[in-house]
Design a protein around this nucleic acid. Sequence first.
DNA 1: TCTTCTAGTAAGGAGTCCTGACTAGAAGCT
DNA 2: AGCTTCTAGTCAGGACTCCTTACTAGAAGA
Lengths: 364, 364
Amino acid sequence: MTPVKPSLELLRSLSDEHVLRALMRAGRLTRAELAVQAGISKPTVSESMRRLTEAGLVVDTGDRTTGRGRIGTYYGLAPSAGTALAISIAPAGVVAERLDAHGTVLTRTTRPLTRPARPELVAAALTAAVEAVRSAVGPARVATVSAADPVDRVTGRLVHLPDAPFLVGELDPVDLLAAYVTGPVTVDNDVNWAARAERDQGAAGDDFAYVYLGEGLGCAVVSAGEVLRGHAGLAGEIAHLITVGPGGRAMPFTEVFAALRLRQPSSTAIDVPALLGAGADVLAVIGTAVAGVLAATVALADPAHIVLGGPWGSEVPDVVGAAFAHLPRHVPVRPAAVADEASLAGVRAHALRSLRDAIIAART
Amino acid sequence: MTPVKPSLELLRSLSDEHVLRALMRAGRLTRAELAVQAGISKPTVSESMRRLTEAGLVVDTGDRTTGRGRIGTYYGLAPSAGTALAISIAPAGVVAERLDAHGTVLTRTTRPLTRPARPELVAAALTAAVEAVRSAVGPARVATVSAADPVDRVTGRLVHLPDAPFLVGELDPVDLLAAYVTGPVTVDNDVNWAARAERDQGAAGDDFAYVYLGEGLGCAVVSAGEVLRGHAGLAGEIAHLITVGPGGRAMPFTEVFAALRLRQPSSTAIDVPALLGAGADVLAVIGTAVAGVLAATVALADPAHIVLGGPWGSEVPDVVGAAFAHLPRHVPVRPAAVADEASLAGVRAHALRSLRDAIIAART
DNA sequence: TCTTCTAGTAAGGAGTCCTGACTAGAAGCT
DNA sequence: AGCTTCTAGTCAGGACTCCTTACTAGAAGA
């Protein structure tokens, strides 16, 4: 709505941004190559390089071209330009990775967790993991965090919803990580990150829904390439969505598993092994219940198709698909394409984008 | 992701855009006032004005300042800069308005429709209405259309969904209006436009859901200020959402009204007068059914609150609110703030934005 | 050894924005 | 009435950015 003010400073800043982004993509380039990549004339690139090297963001890598003509000098991002933290917090443990602006994973560490998760132990594991991937060049610029619980959109804190299992527990990642990072800390739900990974890597397109079925139940709606977050960040928490239960009774999704006695003792978490070992009749009931959830998703969000992920979500697409096909409006159901550390993949991609933006913005 | 190429042309274009937008906001301004409004120096404004008057987008309005110092000349957008069409197509009739770039309604006409709507009659009424608001200065640049049926996101055609009433019928507004407009024709569902009007004018915020309850059933989810459209544009078509019916049975929303015998004869449209005259027990069932829909909306989209609109939606917030309050996750329910021609209000706002963008883009 | 080719720099031109000074012209004050 | 004050718009000059063209340095190939 309000376009930026026209000024010569804007032009200069855009030139620098083009040069930096080209270097981020390619790793190292000569001035001549940069001119081609960035679509800018050689003299202008030279001017920009002078500014960026002075600012300490770009350095001569020492490498030289070998070819016909005069040897060229390769330039690349300075190591001190900054790194990003990509972190995943799940009931099984904490994973922390440090990335540079090219997207390379520099360090990685994991810290197991015991169950049930106790807040102070989770916090300690998180801090320890971050300490372990510390680097010599100084603090990271940005951090991106995936958590296996609902996340408050504004504060980034983990939230406990009624009748949903609290897998990770009371935690404030923004507060814990503030000391290790100079820029923004982004926190979101693991299902949302997995959906973003599916969008980026799978052939999922820009409008689909990702339904996660594990101990907890979650859903991410991707519309026009963006994950729907909602007012408080609790979009996709489908535990209370009303669907078809045993005997055709209407009941909240989570209570279907209570009615089928598929919950873990003294918890609202689903007993996944028991579910996977259940008989065909029980699975049919589950299929119908999931199909009801899918019907709601299709009615409200109109996805091109639905991706099923999670420990048991990837095991039941046929049962669910069969029940779903009976409904008047249905769309294809397919298992997730990104299976291995799906949410961490989404976190990495965001951390990289966020780091690059931070570096671009850093040059005053 | 890909920033624009830095060039002096970019600067010039930005200056012109600032000047044009200031003129659109204020109506008429002197060069000195423009310099202040647009945040640009006086000589630069003069240069920009020279270009824009040459392009025919800006004219001397003939007015002069009266004040202490030298008299100034007021400049304004040229009438030939362009106009926009704002159109609403509902079962009751077609409304067409012509707006200028300041948002003033220049002409307005309505064409009644007989029921049930027949496609060729609707098309004729639409064409007649557009002809009636024709202006002497030439064709409109853009058109924005609201239709009381689901709209295909890509083609703009009206779509008939199973078990939903087809109120307007087979119609291709983009094709019909192409002859009257040089720029884009935007078509969307009336509920989506009403939700946008609610966002702009009411105190609805940027994350809410608008549930429309009339002869047809609709819902618009506004997230981060944007209306969720979905893959084919059919997001919010809640007729098949599974909810609680009579006797606690799970059934699609639309079938609740069939079970209660509240449908119009030989149609899936709801008999609104009968519904409003129904007894407390029937209303309680309806309240529970709507609450089930709201539960799905809250679970999937996490709105800050829910707005109820439509002929009978604004009559039942208490009944619905009571049933909704029993559910574990509920949010405030309120009637719509924009009651009168809500969707046309949303259409107008979009037509204005679209026209302004088209004018900005027009200056090559 | 000479030619060919390429990386990087230098020089000059075009274009844009800004500041500050200047002119024209009307309103208000004495 | 005449002077002062104030404002709209223009002019001149400076700073800056980008581009094209030409040039230099230096290595590989013939």
